[in-house]
Amino acid sequence: MMATLTIQSLRKSFGAVEVLHGLDADIQDGEFIAILGESGCGKSTLLRIIAGLEDTTSGSICIDGTDVTQQSPRDRDIAMVFQSYALYPHMTVRQNIDFPLELMGIDKADRAGRIAETANLLNLTPYLDRKPRDLSGGQRQRVAMGRAIVREPKVFLFDEPLSNLDAKLRVQMRSEIRNLQQRLKVTAIYVTHDQVEALTMADRVMLMNKGKIEQFAPPLELYDHPASVFVAGFVGSPAMNLVEGEVRDRNRIMALGAEFPYAGTGAGEVTVGIRPEHVRIAEPGAALFSGRLMSSENTGDRLNLLLDVAGEAFRVSLNERLQLAPGDSVPLSVPDDCLHVFDRATGKRI
C-alpha cells in the first residue's frame, strides 16, 4: 500500500489573490514529508489541495501515477488527521474509527477485526465505547490517527496534528507518529509551523514561503546548506546571524568590520550567514573579529550571548560557561566552512 505523489506546476488563487505560485515536487514511496512554514505561507492550502478539499487553479496532483486533480477526496484513497482532530462528537471511539470502513462497504466482521487491530496498535482498546468528549487530548489525537490508519490509505495527511497538545505530550506523540509511519510504511505528508517537529520527524522537509517552495531537502541539508536567506533565517534556533558583506578579490569577504577568507564563486554584495552555535571565543591574537557584550542568558547547557559587532546585533551560542559582564569585549572566530554566503539581490545561496 505505498504510493508516490507528484505535484506539477500547481497554482491556486482565491479570487484575485494567488496563494500558491506554481509548485513542483516529487514524493517517493513511504517517505515522511514535512511541509514547514509560517502561517499564511500556503502550506495548509497545499495540503487541502492534495486532500481534494480545495480545487486547483492550474497544475496537477498525481498519486501513484494517476492524475487525481479532478477526483473527489473519497476517490483519492487518502486519510487526514486534522488540527482539531475533527472527531465526530456524537459517535463513540469505535464508531469514529468504523465510519470510514462502513463507507467503504466492508462487511461487519472484517470491520470489527480491523477496529480491534487499530485500537490495539494505538492503545485505545479500553476507550472504544467512550465519546470523544470523555477523552484526554492525547487520546483524542490517537483516535484521529486510528480513524486515518484503519483505512490503510495510500497517503496520510497531517494538518498540524500536535499543536493542541501540551509540550511534553507533543514530544511523545512526535516519536509515536514517526514510529507508526515507519511500521506501516505509508507515504505521509505532515504540515507544521514547528521546525523542531519538521526536522526531527521528516525524511525531507519542504520549507515554504509566500506560496513558493524555498527548499525541499532532508532536514540536515536545510541546516547545513540553506538554499536561501529565508531558509537560513528560518531553520535553527537561535536564528542564524545574517549580515551584509562584500566579496573582494574573489578570496575574502568584508563583513562585521572584519575580513573573512573566502573560496567560493560569489562576487560583489552578498549576505553572510553565521550560525550562533558555530562561533567560538577566540584565543588572544587569533580573533577574526570582536564584539561588545550587551546581554547574556544561561540555559544551563548553553550560554547565549547578544553582542554588538561593528554596530550590528550578533548572537553567539556557546556550550561552555564563562564569566562575562555587559560591556566586556569578546574576541570571536568562525571556522571557514561555517560561513554561508547568499546573493544579496536574489537571496539565493552562492
Binding site: S72, P73, A79, Y88
Partner: peptide
C-alpha cells in the same frame, strides 16, 4: 458546527447526502 467535521466525513468517503445525514444532522439535533 466546525467545517472540519464535514471535511473529515468527506475524506472518510461520505457523499454529500451521507455527510448531512450521518454527521451534520445528528450533531445539530
Amino acid at each position: 458546527i466546525p467545517r472540519e467535521l464535514e471535511e473529515a466525513a468527506f475524506i472518510d468517503g461520505a457523499s454529500f447526502v451521507k455527510t448531512l445525514w450521518r454527521v451534520v444532522i445528528p450533531i445539530m439535533m
